[in-house]
Simulated scan of single mutants.
Amino acid sequence: MIKIGIVGYGHLGKAIEKCIAHFPDMQLFATFTRRDPNSISSHSRVESYDRINEFKDDIDVLILAGGSQKDIPEQAPFLIADFNTVDCYDNHDKIATYYKKMDEIAQANRRVSVIASGWDPGLFSMQRMLMEAVLPNAETYTFWGPGMSQGHSDIVRRIDGVKYGVQYTIPSDKMMEQIRAGQKVDYTPAKAHRRDVYVVLEENVDTEKITKEIKEIPDYFAPYETTVHIISESDFTANHQGMPHGGYVIRQGETSEQTKAKYEYSLQFDHNPEFTASICLAFARAAHHLYNERNFGAKTVLDIPLRYLSLRDHNYLLERFI
């Protein structure tokens, strides 16, 4: 039985706690929070994050369920000294630097750190690599949404003066139609998407200042067409509690001159945190496998044998999936 620890009890942490019931080889040891553990309403064990090192011999894999802007960059380098970890770090532009840092620490401490293990980065990363490998003379296009982005919403909620906030990523249907029709497009992520933000503000805050601050956040909002909607708490409660998401990766090109080929992969799910949690748990299984092999260091989804994600043994995979 793989003993799992969760760091953080927000949307993702709660989803991991819930989804682990579908992973029969895993057991939740505890959730660790920076809040008062007695303030957390949970059917599972909750401990203070300040005491986490006391349990280093009781946990096989820690899943870091915090945000990518501050939580994971601060916590992961500290925790990898004593634990194997899995995270969903999603700042694409900084992943290479983050990987190098985590690999150095993980190697030195003989631990495994699986980074960027969600669906993008994560499952979409796997598809982009596979698409390029089998269809080299082509172009790849990634579209996210329509749906609620966990990472972007988390960043919005951390802004001083924001009481509640959510961000929806909206892809360009027109551009997707053009690509599927074989037309050339001027694709960039910023041109292919827009971002809609809905926030409830604390009392006596500067609306224009908050709006400007959101739109100017580097990497996440600054390059994109972003609209910020200031709404009431009742509106937020009534209309912004769902967490669906999904997206598409499309690669289109030629296998030979004038012989076209298209490879498309898509995801749609009702609850972004729960789907992400399920991915994290599968990669926690892989992290445990790698650790038992003494294959230490940082790993991305591209570095891990696919069968390490599965509960099934090799013979079962050969008989059923090949």
Score class of each variant (00 low, 15 high):
Ala192Arg: 09
Thr237Leu: 15
Thr188Lys: 01
Asp60Ala: 07
Val7Asn: 01
Lys191Cys: 04
Gly246Met: 08
Ser234His: 13
His314Val: 13
Phe29Trp: 06
Asp160Gly: 01
His11Leu: 15
Ser42Ile: 02
Asn239His: 15
Tyr198His: 13
Phe23Gly: 03
Val61Met: 05
Phe29Arg: 01
Ile155Lys: 04
Tyr265Ala: 12
Ile179Leu: 04
Glu225Asp: 14
Ser153Cys: 04
Ile179Val: 14
Gly182Phe: 03
Asn292Ala: 03
Leu309Gln: 09
Glu319Ser: 13
Asp90Thr: 02
Trp119Ser: 10
Val156Met: 02
Ser310Gly: 03
Gln27Val: 13
Gly122Asn: 07
Phe236Lys: 06
His152Trp: 04
Leu135Arg: 13
Leu318Ile: 11
Glu213Trp: 00
Ile214Val: 10
Ile6Ala: 00
Glu47Ala: 08
Ile217Glu: 11
Gly10Leu: 07
Ser48Val: 04
Trp119Phe: 15
Thr142Val: 14
Phe221Leu: 06
Leu309Ile: 03
Pro218Tyr: 05
Phe32Pro: 00
Asn272Glu: 15
Ser256Val: 02
Ala108Asn: 14
Phe32Gln: 04
Ala106Asn: 05
Ile63Val: 14
Arg35Pro: 00
Ala298Gln: 07
Thr211Arg: 10
Ile279Tyr: 05
Arg128Ser: 10
Gly5Gln: 06
Ile2Cys: 01
Gly122Asp: 07
His43Asp: 15
Glu293Thr: 02
Arg307Ala: 13
Tyr308Asp: 14
Met148Val: 14
Val46Cys: 05
Ser149Thr: 09
Asp58Pro: 00
His229Thr: 02
Ser278Phe: 06
Glu104Thr: 14
Phe236Asn: 03
Leu290Trp: 01
Lys14Asn: 11
Lys262Pro: 03
Ile230Val: 14
Lys94Ile: 05
Tyr316Gly: 00
Ala284Thr: 08
Met26Pro: 06
Arg285Gly: 05
Ile2Ala: 01
Lys70Arg: 12
Lys260Gln: 14
Asn292Ser: 08
Pro189Arg: 09
Ala298Leu: 09
Glu54Gly: 12
Thr142Ser: 11
Lys260Cys: 04
Ala238Pro: 00
Val134Phe: 10
Tyr164Trp: 11
Ile105Phe: 06
Gly147Tyr: 00
Gln178Ile: 00
Ala116Glu: 10
Arg251Asp: 00
Gly10Thr: 02
Ser256Asn: 09
Leu267Met: 15
Asn109His: 15
Pro73Phe: 02
Ile230Arg: 07
Gln69Leu: 11
Val197Met: 06
Ile59Leu: 03
Val199Arg: 09
Thr188Phe: 10
Leu123Trp: 01
Pro189Lys: 12
Thr85His: 06
Tyr168Ser: 08
Tyr263Gln: 12
Ala96Leu: 10
Pro305Glu: 01
Trp144Pro: 02
Arg320Gly: 02
Gly67Val: 03
Pro37Asn: 09
Lys299Cys: 07
Leu318Asp: 08
Ser153Glu: 02
Val7Leu: 07
Asp186Asn: 14
Met148Ser: 06
Gly151Phe: 08
Phe236Pro: 01
His193Pro: 03
Val7Glu: 02
Ala65Leu: 02
Gly182Gln: 09
Asp303Gln: 09
Asp173Pro: 11
Asn53Leu: 08
